[in-house]
Amino acid sequence: MHELGIVFHIIKQVEEVANKNSVKEVTKVVLEIGEVSGVVPKYLHDCWKWAVENRSEHMKNCALEVISLKATSYCKDCERMYDTVKSGRICPYCQSKNTYLVTGNEVSIKHIEVKDEN
């Protein structure tokens, strides 16, 4: 259900790009999804086909590709990077809470592939 809402937002943005570039058919959308973004690629794929067939104009047969991005955090106290999935917000080296997420929260459209009419 949550992924469906995200798919609607993706379709909206891709359709805007398609219209701006006078594209007749978008054949593929490539997404970058971070490990801790809370978006499950499997569920995106599950609702993708239905959504593009029923809720898009230029994406009826559009394929979906998802590139997964690893989650990493940085500790401001000991200045080291660590694996966010293993340790969360607390640095595994010095137990500091003074950390932030560097990568892993992405839900981005990397690029789209369209039929070249020329």
């Binding site: 937002h9 570039n21 981005s108 990397k110 690029h111 789209i112 039929k115």
Partner: peptide, 16 residues
């Protein structure tokens, strides 16, 4: 058909 790639590199949540 030839395929053209359009770079977007934008968060899905950007518009919202």
């Amino acid at each position: 058909d030839k395929v053209k790639i359009i770079e977007i590199k934008k968060s899905v949540f950007a518009a919202n």
